[in-house]
Lab assay of single mutants.
Amino acid sequence: TFTSIVTTNPDFGGFEFYVEAGQQFDDSAYEEAYGVSVPSAVVEEMNAKAAQLKDGEWLNVSHE
């Protein structure tokens, strides 16, 4: 299960995956970082959410 939350205070020191406002979700980078295949429906969902981000916001993507 993939989830996401919007934050204005990303923790770059941890093992977190963020999408910056104005960027798209990079499923290849996510797969490389976590060894998890990302279904195309999830990629579309995360890109739709990322498109709604305002300046200074980040989308924190995770999975269980």
Rank of each mutant, 00 (worst) to 15 (best):
T1K: 14
T1R: 13
T3W: 14
T3E: 06
T3A: 07
S4T: 08
S4V: 09
S4E: 02
S4Y: 12
S4M: 08
I5W: 14
I5R: 08
I5L: 12
I5E: 10
V6G: 03
V6A: 03
V6N: 02
V6Q: 02
T7P: 00
T7V: 13
T7K: 03
T7I: 09
T7A: 04
T8G: 06
T8Y: 08
N9T: 13
N9E: 12
N9M: 11
N9I: 08
P10V: 04
P10D: 02
P10W: 01
D11E: 09
D11G: 06
D11M: 10
F12R: 07
F12C: 08
G13S: 15
G14N: 09
G14T: 11
G14S: 14
G14P: 08
F15A: 13
E16G: 15
E16D: 12
E16R: 14
E16N: 15
F17M: 02
F17Y: 09
F17C: 07
F17L: 01
Y18V: 03
V19Y: 01
V19F: 02
V19G: 01
E20R: 10
A21D: 02
A21V: 07
A21N: 07
A21T: 05
A21M: 09
G22E: 04
G22K: 05
G22H: 07
G22C: 07
Q23N: 09
Q23T: 12
Q23H: 14
Q24H: 11
Q24S: 10
F25S: 02
F25C: 04
F25Q: 02
F25N: 00
F25W: 03
F25K: 01
D26F: 04
D26T: 04
D26Q: 06
D26A: 04
D27C: 15
D27W: 15
D27S: 15
D27H: 15
S28P: 04
S28H: 15
A29S: 08
A29D: 05
A29G: 07
A29W: 07
A29Y: 07
Y30R: 00
Y30P: 01
E31H: 11
E31N: 09
E31W: 12
E32K: 15
E32R: 15
A33F: 13
A33G: 03
A33S: 08
A33M: 15
A33W: 13
A33P: 03
Y34L: 06
G35V: 02
V36F: 07
V36N: 02
V36S: 04
V36C: 08
V36E: 03
V38G: 02
V38L: 06
P39N: 03
P39S: 05
P39F: 01
P39G: 05
P39W: 02
P39I: 02
P39C: 07
S40F: 11
S40W: 14
S40P: 14
S40I: 11
A41I: 10
A41N: 12
A41K: 11
A41C: 13
A41V: 09
A41F: 13
A41H: 14
V42M: 04
V42P: 00
V42S: 02
V43K: 09
V43Y: 06
V43L: 08
E44N: 08
E44L: 11
E44D: 12
E45G: 03
E45C: 10
E45L: 10
E45K: 05
M46K: 00
M46W: 11
N47C: 07
N47A: 06
N47H: 03
A48V: 10
K49L: 15
K49R: 09
K49T: 09
A50T: 06
A50G: 03
A51R: 06
A51V: 06
A51H: 07
A51D: 08
A51L: 09
A51Y: 06
A51F: 06
Q52E: 12
Q52M: 11
Q52N: 12
Q52D: 11
L53P: 01
K54C: 07
K54I: 08
K54L: 09
D55G: 08
D55W: 11
D55A: 14
G56A: 04
G56D: 05
G56S: 04
G56E: 04
G56I: 02
E57W: 05
E57M: 06
E57Y: 05
E57K: 01
W58S: 03
W58Q: 04
W58R: 01
W58G: 05
W58C: 05
L59P: 01
L59Y: 00
N60V: 15
N60K: 15
N60Y: 14
N60P: 00
N60A: 15
V61S: 01
V61Q: 01
S62T: 12
H63C: 06
H63N: 05
H63K: 01
H63R: 03
E64R: 10
